[in-house]
């Protein structure tokens, strides 16, 4: 705790709460059309991940050991394959069924 400072954790916590409240609020109030709501939820989720990595897991480009960053790159690659692949497969299917 002392090592990373209470301040850092609080900033992270506030950001995490804000990034959670926005999607919930959008879904609950239907303030935007569905497509745009989905897009904003997606963006908020990605930012949420980055906030956790930066403020809770203390990853950065200067003090974090190189192999940890390498592991992160590997994770990013796998997420890209899984999420990107799912999008490709499901949108392709959607097109063939709906149009």
């Amino acid at each position: 705790m002392e090592q990373h400072g209470l301040r850092n954790y609080l900033i992270g916590f506030v950001l995490a709460v804000v990034l959670s409240v926005i999607p919930f609020w959008l879904v609950a109030t239907h303030a935007l059309p569905p497509q745009r709501t989905l897009l904003i939820i997606g963006i908020a989720a990605v930012l949420q991940v980055l906030v956790h990595l930066r403020f809770f897991l203390h990853l950065n480009f200067t003090t974090t050991p190189k192999e940890n960053l390498l592991a992160l790159v590997f994770t990013a690659l796998l997420i890209f394959i899984m999420v990107g692949g799912s999008f490709w497969i499901m949108f392709d299917l959607h097109q063939r069924m709906m149009t």
């Binding site: 796998l78 394959i81 899984m82 692949g85 490709w88 497969i89 392709d92 299917l93």
Partner: peptide
Amino acid sequence: FTVWLHHFFTMGSSANV
């Protein structure tokens, strides 16, 4: 991690997929 669709080829994806 790059082969999973072969379990459901018959789902009806396009030829490219």
